[in-house]
Deep mutational scan, measured.
Amino acid sequence: MSIQHFRVALIPFFAAFCLPVFAHPETLVKVKDAEDQLGARVGYIELDLNSGKILESFRPEERFPMMSTFKVLLCGAVLSRVDAGQEQLGRRIHYSQNDLVEYSPVTEKHLTDGMTVRELCSAAITMSDNTAANLLLTTIGGPKELTAFLHNMGDHVTRLDRWEPELNEAIPNDERDTTMPAAMATTLRKLLTGELLTLASRQQLIDWMEADKVAGPLLRSALPAGWFIADKSGAGERGSRGIIAALGPDGKPSRIVVIYTTGSQATMDERNRQIAEIGASLIKHW
């Protein structure tokens, strides 16, 4: 067993022997301040990774656009098919120029040779490549099948209805392509620590998230040296922004954090800054 596999296998073990965790309302004060600064709703939840206990939450059962955070769930569904012998990570998928959609920095470079399922998941999570996500959605049967996968996990809230990039439209009061912070946090925890996926697939999923290259201005910008984070960000229309993450000190994750916002007129930089400040408060009061 590799060191990384050992780390993920012992996530519940280490967490069980940690000192009790206590909620700190100071972080919620910052979440509410972010709402004021952005002029928009902000949803927040913080779960203990081992027990699933909610440590703090704000608007945990209000719907927010998922945006690209759905790509972690998508690759979880792909990995479940791999575990069941219905898919192979090494299978190569070929596609054409007509398949390319807006923001496809990886797939646009491989029109000639195609990409493997493993490479597509890596591109979808680490670079948020939209064509990679659409190609992977095709392998599982489309958005409705991802929703069905989530329902089978016990998540009857999260739903995907459309493809990239239309799913980022974020129309107010439109339930399409949305989740709730509580539902997303619980589902992410199941994917990373539950028995739904094999140990190898859980490790692969967290490795992809740990290698995320496009979430630097968010929670990662607030992390002290030595902290662990595996995350996936999302951005959408109407001032929408979000991030889902597993993080913790001492090089291992111990909490799940989900943050979503929508309806702001603020710039992307300002949305990023507010999420980073929430992260800084979380870490300060850990």
Rank of each mutant, 00 (worst) to 15 (best):
L160K: 00
T186C: 14
I206H: 04
D207Y: 06
V106R: 11
L135H: 09
T179I: 02
L150G: 11
E62D: 05
E61T: 14
V31L: 07
A215S: 15
P165A: 06
S68H: 00
T138I: 15
E175N: 06
T267C: 08
G239W: 01
A235M: 06
S51H: 07
T262K: 04
E46Y: 10
L247V: 06
P65C: 04
L120Y: 02
G85V: 08
L135G: 02
K30F: 04
Q204G: 05
R189P: 02
M180V: 12
V117F: 05
M67P: 00
M268N: 14
R59A: 10
A170W: 05
G76Y: 09
E87L: 10
N173I: 07
Q88D: 14
D33V: 06
R81Q: 08
F149N: 14
I45R: 04
P143K: 04
G52C: 03
M66D: 00
D177V: 00
L196G: 12
V78G: 02
E277T: 11
G236C: 10
I229Y: 15
H110R: 13
G90C: 05
T147H: 05
L89K: 04
K232V: 00
E26L: 14
L136E: 01
T193L: 10
P181V: 08
L100I: 09
G90W: 04
A185Q: 00
S51L: 07
G226K: 04
P165V: 10
G141I: 15
L192E: 02
L197R: 12
L120R: 01
G43M: 00
G239D: 02
G194H: 13
H110E: 09
H285D: 09
L218Y: 03
E175F: 08
L247G: 01
E102R: 05
T193S: 11
V29F: 13
P224S: 08
E61N: 13
D231P: 12
F58S: 10
T186F: 12
K252Y: 05
T147A: 05
Q274P: 07
R159Y: 07
G263M: 07
N272P: 02
T126R: 08
M66H: 08
T262F: 06
G85C: 08
T116C: 10
G154P: 07
L223Y: 03
P172Q: 05
S240Y: 03
L55P: 02
S122T: 11
K232Y: 00
A245I: 02
T178Q: 04
E270D: 11
R176K: 14
A133Q: 01
L136M: 07
T139N: 12
A148D: 09
M66E: 02
D212K: 03
T107M: 07
A170M: 13
L135F: 08
L38Q: 07
S122F: 14
G242N: 15
G142M: 03
S104Y: 04
G194D: 08
K30G: 05
T198F: 08
V72L: 11
W227H: 02
Y95S: 03
I256K: 01
G154Y: 04
G216F: 14
K53C: 12
S233M: 01
V72K: 02
R273G: 06
T126G: 05
A246N: 15
D212L: 03
A215P: 15
Q203M: 03
T193R: 15
Q97H: 06
E56N: 10
E210W: 10
I256Q: 02
G234I: 00
P217C: 15
A84L: 13
T267Y: 06
A185V: 13
E102I: 09
E164F: 00
K213W: 06
P60H: 06
A230S: 10
A222H: 07
Q274D: 09
A40E: 08
G234A: 10
G239E: 02
A246E: 05
S254M: 07
W208F: 10
G226A: 06
G76D: 01
Q203K: 04
I256F: 05
L137K: 01
A245R: 00
S51P: 03
E35T: 06
F70N: 12
P105Q: 07
G239L: 01
A182H: 13
R220K: 13
A246S: 10
A276W: 04
L89R: 06
G90N: 08
P25L: 10
T147K: 03
S221C: 03
G248A: 05
M67W: 01
R202I: 15
E62V: 05
G216S: 08
E145T: 09
F228T: 11
P143L: 10
G216Y: 11
D83V: 09
E270H: 03
E210Y: 14
I278R: 01
G114R: 04
C121E: 01
L137V: 10
R162A: 08
L197H: 08
T193Q: 14
L282K: 03
F58D: 02
T112N: 13
H24I: 07
G226Q: 05
E237I: 08
W286D: 03
A170I: 09
I275F: 15
A183R: 13
E166M: 15
A182F: 14
R91A: 12
D207Q: 04
G226F: 13
S254E: 05
L160C: 08
W208T: 03
I229R: 01
I278K: 01
L218F: 09
Q97R: 11
Q97W: 13
L120A: 07
R220I: 03
D269L: 13
P143W: 03
R271N: 07
T158W: 01
G76K: 00
A230Y: 03
A132W: 01
A280V: 13
E195P: 13
S221K: 03
V42M: 09
Q37R: 06
A34R: 02
L167E: 01
D113G: 04
L247D: 02
S254G: 07
G216V: 09
A225E: 08
Q37L: 09
A280L: 11
S264T: 05
L247H: 01
A266I: 03
L167V: 09
L188W: 12
L79F: 06
N130D: 06
N50P: 07
N50Y: 05
G154I: 02
V72H: 02
T147Q: 07
Q274C: 07
D177K: 00
K30N: 03
L73S: 13
T187N: 04
Y103S: 07
V257I: 14
L223Q: 08
P253T: 07
G90T: 05
D99T: 05
T126E: 10
A266S: 07
R271T: 12
V101P: 02
T126N: 05
E175L: 12
I283D: 02
T178N: 03
N50E: 06
D174R: 03
A170Q: 14
P217F: 04
P65T: 12
G43V: 01
H94R: 06
E102S: 09
T187P: 01
G279L: 07
L196S: 10
R81V: 09
I259R: 00
I256V: 10
G234K: 00
S240R: 02
I229N: 03
S281N: 15
G236N: 09
H110I: 04
G114D: 14
T261G: 12
G242K: 00
L111D: 13
L28M: 09
E169V: 04
D83M: 07
R118A: 14
V101D: 11
L150D: 02
N152A: 11
G76P: 00
N50S: 13
G85S: 07
H94A: 06
R162T: 10
A133M: 00
S122Q: 10
M127Y: 06
R238M: 03
P65F: 03
V106Q: 14
N50H: 10
A276V: 11
S96C: 05
R176A: 05
G43K: 00
N168I: 06
L49T: 10
L73D: 04
D207A: 06
E166R: 12
P181I: 15
L135K: 09
M127R: 12
L191P: 00
L28Y: 10
S240E: 11
N173W: 12
M184V: 05
D231Q: 15
I140E: 07
R118E: 11
R241F: 03
R118Q: 15
G76W: 10
G52P: 13
L192N: 03
L55I: 09
V31P: 01
A222D: 15
G242L: 00
T116Y: 09
R238Q: 10
N98Y: 10
R41S: 13
